[in-house]
């Protein structure tokens, strides 16, 4: 792998890391497998891209993306809690609906952001070369988001959210409306995912309706890689592990794409298969370990 490819993987790891934090929040903290993210990532991209092409400041467009993602998440939360639809199905319904909505927002399947202002411009204006500027910006933003998430999860509301995922009966009898917490939590998660999508679109110069395919699997793979490598003893540790897991995952992908056996090499379209296999192995590892206790000693 070249140095530039490595820097590119780092940059991708950080920018997708914000999405991974969102997936961590639903999947691990709320125990709510949320597939909405496959739709809310391109939603954030679409909202931000359309806002920018209409003359909105790139940074302000990020706020729009956050808001749109939050609304998408709350819809999944409402479907699950108030209409009693299974969480997985509720999130698939929102995801499918978002496909149509995203095309409506963009008035087509994609929007190009060539020559328009982006969030990276201020750093480039300071004289940094493009690849350094985006890496600096995305690592700074993703670290700030990680810090904010850790802070939130230690507040009264955040603690209620953690307890809702772990023991809903207990937190209900402590006076917390778990429905509201789930709706808010899934909203917050999708706000982060859409935020990540907006940054990705600005970085790659386009928003595309299909850019969200496989988001949930990439997110899960990153969460699991992070937990395995960096541990998940405390919330603080688990959040940092999720972000770093995303970076490791993107580096692993870049390595896989660079490999060659004779005439065979992986293409980007093989990524979903590789990631799915990775997640299956990671999810099954604890079970296999339990079945063969002696072999692991």
């Amino acid at each position: 792998m070249t140095f530039y490819a490595f820097l590119g993987a780092l940059e991708q790891g950080f920018v997708y890391g914000i999405m991974v934090l969102g997936v961590y929040l639903t999947f691990r903290i709320l125990e709510f497998p949320d597939l909405t993210v496959d739709g809310s990532l391109p939603l954030g991209a679409a909202v931000s891209a359309v806002a920018i092409t209409h003359g909105v400041h790139p940074y302000l467009s990020l706020l729009f993306a956050l808001g749109a993602g939050f609304v998408a998440g709350t819809i999944t939360g409402l479907l699950n809690t108030k209409l009693k639809i299974l969480h997985l199905l509720a999130s698939i319904l929102t995801m499918i609906a978002l496909y149509s909505i995203n095309i409506r927002i963009m008035d087509g399947p994609n929007v190009a952001l060539l020559g328009t202002p982006t969030v990276i411009d201020p750093l480039v204006a300071m004289g940094l070369p493009g690849y350094i500027a985006s890496l600096t910006l995305f690592s700074a933003i993703s670290l700030a988001v990680t810090g904010a998430l850790i802070w939130f999860l230690h507040t009264e509301m955040g603690q209620a959210l953690v307890a809702t995922g772990d023991n809903p009966q207990m937190i209900t009898s402590q006076g917390v409306d778990t429905h509201r917490i789930i709706i808010f939590g899934v909203g917050l998660s999708n706000a982060l995912v859409a935020f990540s999508g907006a940054l990705i679109a600005q970085n790659q110069g386009a928003s595309d309706v299909n850019m969200g395919v496989g988001t949930i699997i990439a997110g899960l793979a990153s969460v699991i890689v992070g937990e395995t490598v960096f541990g998940s003893k405390s919330i603080r540790r688990a959040c940092v592990a999720a972000l770093l897991g995303s970076v490791l995952y993107r580096i692993a992908i870049a390595l896989a794409l660079g490999m060659k056996w004779g005439r065979f090499s992986f293409t980007p379209s093989d990524l979903n298969l590789i990631t799915a296999l990775l997640v299956i192995v990671a999810l099954c590892a604890p079970m296999v370990k339990e079945k063969f206790p002696y072999k692991n000693k």
Partner: peptide, 23 residues
């Protein structure tokens, strides 16, 4: 009790029983 949380975190949840939980 909430197994994923510490003793003090559990007690803090209980201390806020019936109160608004903010930031």
């Amino acid at each position: 009790t909430c197994a994923a949380m510490t003793i003090e975190e559990n007690l803090a949840l209980a201390r806020r029983r019936g109160c608004r939980r903010g930031l």
